[in-house]
Design a binder for these strands. Structure first.
Length: 266
DNA sequence: CACCAGGCTCCGA
DNA sequence: TCGGAGCATGGT
């Protein structure tokens, strides 16, 4: 696993490279500072091993994709080392609601403000994981459900505030049961998520893939669809099989690289 | 000033 | 069912 690619490829928004090769971020209420050489330590820690999905054989998934679709090789080469994180479903849902018609730096800023500010970066040490309880965990659905649009004004997330509040209300009340979506049929899970105002096919699929680790979900991204049409005319994304999510992340990275830092989908 | 950001809602045809 | 403006905010 490549830490930089995995943490900065756009699947999560609460990690940053605080020093060359050193990454600090928050997940599951824990704040961690880590570098590539700490990989064995991550593997030995049950929480982080699960979060970084270190128990899954990505090399095999990668080879399967490259063999199935030779034109995917270039993207897979670029995405080599990316793991699909096991993020908190609620946090992932909010993150991708906030991501719509938005850019990654601003998404990160909004989420930082939503969590109540910056974490303090920890000095690196020679051995052992530098982790501590996060001073600014992601706010729960219950917390957010008690808020108003005026309360969220400081986030400066624009029209997305209303979407966030509807998601909070539906999740807190149990109208949408995120945990149940882990085992629900994919299409049913997608429909459930799309009952939330502001959640369309793209946000729903990203929540399924990044928040619920449904690797078979292939986000309905306009860039991806364009690349699909160009590379695999007539091929349904579902034929990617269990590694569909990984393929989506590879293609996403590839398209971004081709287009430069940002790209218009128009 | 224009254009656009890991889209979605809403409206009209 | 489909297309396109509008959406709030910030960056280039």
């Amino acid at each position: 696993m490549n830490l930089r690619k995995t943490l900065l490829c756009g699947q999560c928004f609460r990690w940053q490279e605080t020093a060359p090769g050193v990454f600090s971020g928050t997940a599951g209420g824990r704040f961690l500072t880590v570098s590539q050489k700490d990989l064995p330590l991550l593997k030995a820690d049950p929480f982080w091993c699960s979060y970084f999905d270190l128990g899954t054989d990505y090399d095999t998934l990668q080879r399967q994709l490259a063999v199935l679709y030779p034109t995917l090789r270039e993207a897979a080469q670029l995405g080599m080392g990316i793991h699909i994180l096991r993020q908190d479903p609620w946090e992932a849902l909010c993150s991708f609601i906030l991501s719509q018609n938005n850019n990654i730096p601003r998404i990160q800023g909004i989420i930082n403000r939503l969590c109540g500010g910056q974490e303090e970066s920890l000095p690196p040490i020679m051995s052992g994981l530098r982790q501590q309880k996060s001073l600014h965990p992601f706010p729960s659905a219950e917390t957010l459900a008690g808020q108003t649009e005026q309360d969220l004004a400081p986030l400066r997330c624009g029209f997305r505030a209303r979407y966030l509040l509807d998601a909070a209300e539906k999740v807190a009340s149990g109208t949408v049961n995120l945990e149940a979506l882990r085992t629900a049929p994919l299409e049913e899970a997608r429909r459930q998520l799309m009952t939330i105002i502001g959640v369309g096919p793209k946000v729903a699929d990203c929540t399924l893939l990044y928040g619920l680790h449904r690797m078979e979900a292939f986000p309905k991204d306009v860039w991806i669809k364009r690349a699909m049409a160009q590379w695999f005319p007539g091929v349904a994304p579902s034929s990617f099989g269990p590694a569909a999510g990984l393929a989506q992340q590879y293609i996403f990275c590839w398209v971004r690289q081709q287009a430069g830092r940002t790209v218009s989908h128009k």
